[in-house]
Write a protein that binds this DNA or RNA. Structure first.
Lengths: 332, 332
DNA sequence: TTGTAGGCGTTATCAA
DNA sequence: TTGATAACGCCTACAA
């Protein structure tokens, strides 16, 4: 049998209430009693049972992060940010995986089943109907990357990101800029559509005629390799590659292009997206569009807390937009 | 007020017990009643409160992962493995951060406070006294990377890893092999000591006279850059670098060395450690010593479950050792 | 300053 | 096949 508050009370010759108050360092308890009780607690390795507490208080002091993939670099950086922010607080982080398509249901399970006080929804977009229901039930949910007007979320200004990238490449004297997109763009991820629209708008604004959209199946290294071969079909060939599909694909392209004797950036300039650790460690430094992912994680956590604690009635519909930034290295 | 099992019972015109049985799909309940109850559950968005369940059952069905850093690539891959293994089970994963030095206490808090049924202890080594106490209390704890005889853990055969690396480099005709180590090696991480001992033993066995230990403060990219400059002081210079400090430092060295016109691997061969995503994405492919980190994560989870469920009395002292493997790319 | 009592939502036991 | 009751460990009134 585990040590409970009752046993501590018994051993210390006080009532359970007293122990409870001591644990929360109440002013109402005399120093002598406190010392006595704390000694017993120390000796018996007593730690309060969290379920009892949770059940009574009706809250878990936990934040859930739900995603339909296990781990990738974006998530790693994001979680890193969340953990930094969460550590000094009373909250803890719980990770839940949800198979693609079942995420909305998982959210309900977690929030209604009191498995967490708030949810950070990564990389998927629950139907608006769901979101409405959550709002009505006052269940805090923060959307990450893909956001919906009227619901809390953190996002990058992906439109601006593409403008930045195009402008930078033009300034570097490039004339034929191709954009690389992962197919997923067409599977309901509005933030990827936004990158495409930003690219098109930027070209139009600058009155450029050349445009080229290269689609790859996913944002893997292999898809990056494939870009090199896809390029051989194109005429005229682009002189710059804007890998809106992420740093990994850019790194993959670099490997294949350089292995085939291409000069980067002279023959072709290459820009990545994200500024993940990959962009920092490619042998030829990768110029990239940076998203402040850790900050986004911290902000998402803060937003969740604001919703939980209800301090700020605006929080539940606040969308925090982060600005991208070009990190210049050698590849462009 | 949230929907509870009582309310469902009331709406369905049955007793709470019945609802509980329906939820667990008991054979004892008639199909008609089941259907009726399930309809109500569906309609009301009822999900069982986990704290109630936990409190009653005395278990959380959660596994905790505790570490004294937020996220890095090893942890990312490891967690990935754990999540793959955990998903199809009833368990869930909770992440806890513990400030360096406070990890043991955090373990107690988590296990005695019923915050999780088992702990995966990453990257730190609780004192043996602590471990004994946990054993006595039958609290499952699995050590990751650094293990202690008599207590459950997963580890890499780091000694063999160094032998493999040295042998590979010798076979490639290298004569002067230096090992790179992060200072942390001397802060109580036996698995890093083991890499050093493996290196020394391998050199001795092959009767090589040259040996060189280069210490860097940490396993960051910048420390990798610094290696290049440290090399300038050495005479004779090594013709091979075994970065036991990890892929990131190897990638850093590659950047700096190539930027300064060195030829890799002709002037100097470079081997990384881990085979993280970094090793795959350096522009010049990084030859490296692979640890099967995801498998280690899966194994750690399984070991934890075996301990929780008590199916295998040996589990609580089982150490699972994984074998390293050389992944050949271009840098060595 | 400390103690008593009741209930949070669930499940296990036993009875019907 | 279903229902009543008690209990898990804690916290919050309220009483002493």
């Amino acid at each position: 049998m585990a040590v409970t508050i009752k046993k501590i009370a018994e051993l210390a010759g006080v009532a359970p209430t007293t122990v409870s108050l001591v644990l929360r360092n109440s002013q109402k308890i005399s120093e002598a009693t406190k010392r006595q009780v704390l000694r017993i607690i120390e000796e018996t390795d007593y730690y309060p049972n969290q379920s009892g507490k949770t059940l009574k208080q009706g809250r878990t002091d936990a934040i859930a992060i739900i995603s339909s993939y296990f781990q990738n670099l974006f998530k790693m950086d994001f979680v890193n940010g969340v953990e930094q922010a969460i550590f000094p607080t009373k909250y803890e982080l719980r990770h839940y995986y949800a198979q693609s398509g079942t995420e909305g249901n998982r959210c309900k399970e977690i929030l209604f089943g009191k498995m967490a006080d708030a949810v950070l929804a990564m990389n998927f977009l629950p139907e608006t109907e769901y979101l409405e229901k959550m709002h009505k039930a006052r269940k805090p949910i923060v959307l990450v990357e893909d956001t919906v007007k009227g619901f809390a979320g953190v996002r990058l200004d992906n439109f601006a990101a593409s403008s930045l990238a195009v402008d930078y490449l033009l300034k570097r004297g490039r004339k034929r800029i191709a954009i690389i997109l992962a197919m997923k763009a067409y599977m309901g991820h509005s933030f990827l559509d936004e990158r495409l629209r930003g690219y098109i708008a930027a070209l139009r604004e600058r009155q450029l005629e050349y445009s080229e959209i290269i689609e790859i199946p996913d944002y893997s290294l292999e898809s990056g390799h494939a870009i090199y071969h896809r390029l051989q079909e194109k005429s005229p060939r682009p002189d710059a590659l804007y890998c809106a599909s992420g740093d990994i694909t850019a790194a993959g392209f670099l490997q294949e292009a350089i292995a085939h004797g291409m000069q980067v950036p002279d023959d072709i300039a290459v820009m990545g997206f994200d500024d993940s650790i990959i962009a920092q460690t490619t042998t030829l430094g990768l110029t990239t569009v940076r998203q402040p992912v850790q900050e986004m994680g911290r902000a998402a956590f803060q937003l969740a807390v604001d919703m939980i604690e209800g301090a700020d009635p605006q929080a539940s519909s606040r969308i925090i937009t982060f600005q991208p930034e070009i990190i210049v290295r050698q590849s462009a």
